[in-house]
Write a protein that binds this DNA or RNA. Sequence first.
DNA 1: ATTCTGATTAGATAATTTTCTAATCAAATC
DNA 2: GATTTGATTAGAAAATTATCTAATCAGAAT
Lengths: 184, 184
Amino acid sequence: MSNRDLDARAALFKALGHPIRLLILSLIRLQPRHGEELAAILSLDPATISHHLTKLVEAGLLQSAKDQYYQTYSLSGALLNRTLAEIALLPQPALVPTVALDAYRAQVLDAFFTQGRLTHLPAQVKKQRIVLEKIAEDFDPHRDYTEREVNQILVDYHDDVAALRRALIDHGLFTRTQGIYHRQ
Amino acid sequence: MSNRDLDARAALFKALGHPIRLLILSLIRLQPRHGEELAAILSLDPATISHHLTKLVEAGLLQSAKDQYYQTYSLSGALLNRTLAEIALLPQPALVPTVALDAYRAQVLDAFFTQGRLTHLPAQVKKQRIVLEKIAEDFDPHRDYTEREVNQILVDYHDDVAALRRALIDHGLFTRTQGIYHRQ
DNA sequence: ATTCTGATTAGATAATTTTCTAATCAAATC
DNA sequence: GATTTGATTAGAAAATTATCTAATCAGAAT
């Protein structure tokens, strides 16, 4: 997941992302060719062709060899047989989803908490969940709580403790049986 | 081989040619996501994410659907399973090689002929061949020529008819048997 | 009806890429 | 050795792309 790797993948696609370079590859597939020839065929300046050829070589799509007068370019096969997915989609260390979730969670928490207190309960389920999970962390899942105990903790977050209690239960983060609360 | 097609192919690669867009695809592969979420994860402005998402959709790599609050993006699978070659290398109508050769030939002929006369015989075999084939067109392959007749035609191209005769034979464009010349 | 929220568009600026002309290089020919 | 020829590099102008701020839009919640 290093930047090195990521940028290299993008660079390969970038090398393919120009119509003239696709034409060059297609022409060279028929037979190895040299720059002058390509310049004549495509009606472009040899310097321009050289520029494109360099990019294709850097990307590993072409290889070149000196042949008498000419610098002859030929296809460097392996890469072209890969699928887009193999190159575009990064391998998924278990870590990625965690990092991803954390970033979003941090933004949401930041939006609804001010100095440790909840400004208001998010209207959206997705965000409500994040906020409630955060609050639930203050409870020990290994013991029971009376409603009064629950309220004492919740009031630090928001005055409307009843709404918070209800939301925690709706989200399945808490159970209540006969007036006794328990964090799931 | 239309420009339309060519540019569309290049555009697909161009869409993949940016590290952030690769990250977006990789994140969306894990689960469909909406723009805000991606912006938070990648620490970028929502407008920037929107711009990248638009490119990915235009390329046919993503599809989007309105989901309650969110515009949710998901992978649009098919394309990603293609190989680079399938998209980068153009189908080869028999025409392409001809067009290609003609362009190069035209350039060489233009370089060595001035007002129908050969300025000098190219040193390079590749170019010599092109020039000699052009000259050979002036001969009828269905009949024989004496050396004198050959010279009369060649002298219009260049004073050193002996060198031309020799080159034509070396290249196998002419045969000489007992002083009689014949175009192959 | 008004406000909120996520998404997109407009506009501006910065960064990158493409393309050419000139200059330079290196190998091959004369 | 001088010259030709194909290839590359330097440098600059033109075109494209990426990114942000602001403004706008559309759907949902109050």
